[in-house]
Protein backbone atom coordinates (compact mmCIF):
# COMPACT_ATOMS: atom_id res chain seq x y z
CA UNK A 1 0.00 0.00 0.00
CA UNK A 2 1.35 3.39 -0.95
CA UNK A 3 -0.35 6.19 0.93
CA UNK A 4 1.06 9.56 -0.23
CA UNK A 5 4.47 7.92 -0.48
CA UNK A 6 4.74 7.27 3.27
CA UNK A 7 6.62 4.06 4.22
CA UNK A 8 4.53 1.31 5.82
CA UNK A 9 6.24 1.33 9.21
CA UNK A 10 5.42 5.00 9.78
CA UNK A 11 1.79 4.30 8.84
CA UNK A 12 1.68 1.59 11.54
CA UNK A 13 3.20 3.94 14.12
CA UNK A 14 0.81 6.77 13.26
CA UNK A 15 -2.11 4.33 13.49
CA UNK A 16 -1.05 3.20 16.98
CA UNK A 17 -0.71 6.83 18.11
CA UNK A 18 -4.19 7.47 16.70
CA UNK A 19 -5.50 4.50 18.74
CA UNK A 20 -4.06 6.13 21.85
CA UNK A 21 -5.74 9.43 20.94
CA UNK A 22 -9.09 7.58 20.58
CA UNK A 23 -8.70 6.12 24.09
CA UNK A 24 -8.11 9.64 25.44
CA UNK A 25 -11.20 10.90 23.53
CA UNK A 26 -13.30 8.20 25.22
CA UNK A 27 -12.07 9.55 28.57
CA UNK A 28 -12.98 13.10 27.52
CA UNK A 29 -16.52 11.99 26.64
CA UNK A 30 -17.04 9.72 29.68
CA UNK A 31 -15.17 11.72 32.33
CA UNK A 32 -17.28 12.15 35.47
CA UNK A 33 -15.82 15.51 36.53
CA UNK A 34 -14.40 18.51 34.67
CA UNK A 35 -10.71 17.89 35.63
CA UNK A 36 -10.96 14.38 34.10
CA UNK A 37 -11.87 15.87 30.75
CA UNK A 38 -9.04 18.40 30.92
CA UNK A 39 -6.54 15.61 31.69
CA UNK A 40 -7.77 13.81 28.57
CA UNK A 41 -7.37 16.98 26.50
CA UNK A 42 -3.83 17.50 27.79
CA UNK A 43 -2.89 13.94 26.80
CA UNK A 44 -4.43 14.42 23.34
CA UNK A 45 -2.36 17.60 22.85
CA UNK A 46 0.93 15.88 23.70
CA UNK A 47 0.22 12.90 21.43
CA UNK A 48 -0.77 15.23 18.57
CA UNK A 49 2.55 17.10 18.93
CA UNK A 50 4.53 13.85 18.76
CA UNK A 51 2.54 12.47 15.84
CA UNK A 52 3.10 15.74 13.94
CA UNK A 53 6.88 15.27 14.37
CA UNK A 54 6.67 11.63 13.22
CA UNK A 55 4.50 12.63 10.23
CA UNK A 56 7.10 15.25 9.31
CA UNK A 57 9.78 12.54 9.36
CA UNK A 58 7.61 10.24 7.24
CA UNK A 59 6.63 12.89 4.71
CA UNK A 60 10.16 14.35 4.62
CA UNK A 61 9.31 17.98 5.33
CA UNK A 62 10.53 20.01 8.31
CA UNK A 63 7.56 22.40 8.41
CA UNK A 64 5.49 19.95 10.50
CA UNK A 65 8.10 20.15 13.29
CA UNK A 66 7.83 23.95 13.38
CA UNK A 67 4.03 23.68 13.60
CA UNK A 68 4.49 21.19 16.46
CA UNK A 69 6.62 23.68 18.44
CA UNK A 70 3.98 26.40 18.18
CA UNK A 71 1.22 23.90 19.01
CA UNK A 72 3.11 22.83 22.15
CA UNK A 73 3.29 26.33 23.57
CA UNK A 74 -0.31 27.23 22.65
CA UNK A 75 -1.69 24.03 24.22
CA UNK A 76 0.35 24.75 27.37
CA UNK A 77 -1.19 28.21 27.63
CA UNK A 78 -4.72 26.86 27.13
CA UNK A 79 -4.16 24.15 29.79
CA UNK A 80 -2.93 26.73 32.32
CA UNK A 81 -5.90 28.99 31.55
CA UNK A 82 -8.47 26.20 32.01
CA UNK A 83 -6.76 25.10 35.25
CA UNK A 84 -6.99 28.67 36.56
CA UNK A 85 -10.67 28.74 35.59
CA UNK A 86 -11.38 25.47 37.43
CA UNK A 87 -9.61 26.79 40.49
CA UNK A 88 -12.14 29.61 40.65
CA UNK A 89 -9.67 32.33 41.54
CA UNK A 90 -9.33 35.84 40.33
CA UNK A 91 -7.16 36.39 37.29
Amino acid sequence: MNFFGIPDIYLVILGLLFLSIIMAIIRVIKGPTAPDRIVGLDTINTIVIVSMIIFGLAAGSVIYVDVAIVYAFLSFISTLFIAKYLEGGEF
Binding site: T33, A34, P35, I38, V39, D42, T46, I49, V50, I53, V65, A68, I69, A72, F73, S75, F76, T79, L80, A83, K84, L86, E87, G88
Partner: peptide, 25 residues
Protein backbone atom coordinates in the same frame (compact mmCIF):
# COMPACT_ATOMS: atom_id res chain seq x y z
CA UNK B 1 10.21 20.75 20.19
CA UNK B 2 11.47 18.18 22.72
CA UNK B 3 12.55 20.94 25.14
CA UNK B 4 9.12 22.57 24.72
CA UNK B 5 7.37 19.29 25.60
CA UNK B 6 9.69 18.65 28.57
CA UNK B 7 9.12 22.16 29.98
CA UNK B 8 5.39 22.52 29.44
CA UNK B 9 4.01 19.05 30.19
CA UNK B 10 4.93 18.70 33.91
CA UNK B 11 4.01 22.33 34.59
CA UNK B 12 0.55 21.84 33.10
CA UNK B 13 0.08 18.64 35.09
CA UNK B 14 1.01 20.40 38.33
CA UNK B 15 -1.44 23.23 37.64
CA UNK B 16 -4.19 20.71 36.79
CA UNK B 17 -3.64 18.70 39.98
CA UNK B 18 -3.75 21.86 42.10
CA UNK B 19 -6.90 23.06 40.34
CA UNK B 20 -8.57 19.65 40.79
CA UNK B 21 -7.81 19.63 44.51
CA UNK B 22 -9.02 23.17 45.04
CA UNK B 23 -12.22 22.57 43.07
CA UNK B 24 -13.11 19.85 45.54
CA UNK B 25 -12.27 16.52 43.85
Amino acid sequence: ALVAILLTNPTGAHALARAAHRSGV
